[in-house]
Nucleic acid binder design. Structure first.
Length: 310
DNA sequence: TAGCACGGGTACGTTACTTCA
DNA sequence: CTTGAAGTAACGTACCCGTGC
């Protein structure tokens, strides 16, 4: 399962380049700040809404599309003793009132499907991914202070979330609710998953950018070194015209018409110095970046002061 | 129209838990 | 069995924006 997730992540993140990366803040959906449906006010529900035990009776793998399946949730008054002893869980105090208006006042605070490793081992196998997604809500009393149980999302849940993320990196409330319903998760869980996913994307992209800029820096440093050396050579030539006259074809600086870089065909023939035609190894974006990073104006150096050969 | 309070969203940093070598 | 590292779900906080008064 972990491998699958890693592969998915690598697939979706590894191919992220500077050119196709869209900022996490870029929402492809309608602005979330103007939800198309009213969010219930916290104040409308009051602080002590009855909590329920939710038992997900359906297999997660059955979920097809939103509306295709009904989440098989059994709502049990939490004031009764829980009958499912095998499921360890907790209740978060967090209130979830994001249900579609009036659809359900369910104040689900579901969380972990049971965290004990021994229990997980007993449930080894893909068939139990769904079981791990089973959850319940228990009373506040069981919500131990500082205890923060984590629900490991099943492979199917992760896959659906990934697919959704590929389409939209942000969710509007309706999408969030639909996803939550489809996956038998709390809307809050979907929301958190997307937050974390955006963070991972950004982190990955930052690493890629950093690596790229490092290479840019190395390249520019090398070019700077080469140009400095060239300047020294030209100065030396200027100071000793006699020597210059005796020299074989002098350094000839040419400027690329497209990028206005000064190149030296004589010196750039070495492997370390690309040919003029080769210094377009960067994309336009690369060049722009490189140009903006150039520590000095890329102008012809001392061309007018170089004695012309007769 | 400006100012304020409020609610919702996101980004960011952190914590706590899970998994695996 | 223990342990440390890596991954990640969940949380807390700050900030921004839209809305209503």
């Amino acid at each position: 399962m972990m491998m699958m997730e890693k592969e998915d992540l690598a697939l979706s993140l590894g191919l992220n380049t500077s050119t196709n990366y869209f900022p996490p803040s870029l929402s492809l959906m309608a602005p979330s700040s103007s939800p198309s449906w009213p969010m219930p006010s916290h104040r409308l529900l009051g602080p002590s809404v009855t909590r329920y035990i939710l038992v997900a009776g359906g297999s997660i793998s059955n979920v097809g599309g939103a509306g295709e399946t009904q989440p098989l949730l059994t709502m049990i008054d939490v004031n009764r003793a829980p009958s499912v002893a095998a499921t360890a869980g907790k209740v978060s105090d967090e209130e979830e009132e994001e249900e579609e208006g009036g659809a359900s006042s369910l104040n689900s605070a579901v969380s972990s499907a049971g965290g004990k490793r021994a229990e997980r081992h007993a449930l080894a196998g893909d068939d139990h991914d769904a079981e791990r997604a089973c959850f319940r809500v228990v009373s506040d009393e069981e919500d131990g202070e500082g205890s923060r149980k984590k629900l490991r999302l099943s492979k199917d849940q992760s896959a659906v979330l990934e697919e959704s993320f590929k389409k939209h990196s942000t969710l509007n409330p309706k999408q969030k609710l639909a996803l939550a319903e489809q996956l038998n998760l709390r809307p809050r869980q979907v929301e958190v998953w997307f937050q974390n996913r955006r963070a991972r994307t950004k982190l990955k992209q930052t690493e890629v950018d950093c690596e790229f800029l490092k290479k840019c820096c190395e390249s520019l440093t090398e070019e700077n070194r080469r140009l400095q050396k060239e300047v020294q050579e030209l100065r030396a030539l200027k100071l000793s015209p006699q020597l210059y006259m005796q020299m074989t074809p002098p350094t000839t600086l040419t400027m690329c018409p497209s990028c206005e870089r000064v190149s030296n065909p004589a010196t750039s023939s070495s492997p370390a110095n690309p040919q003029p035609s080769e210094h377009h190894q960067y994309s336009n974006h690369d060049r722009q970046t490189a140009a903006s990073w150039a520590p000095f104006p890329l102008e012809p150096l001392f061309l007018d002061s170089i004695p012309q050969r007769s």
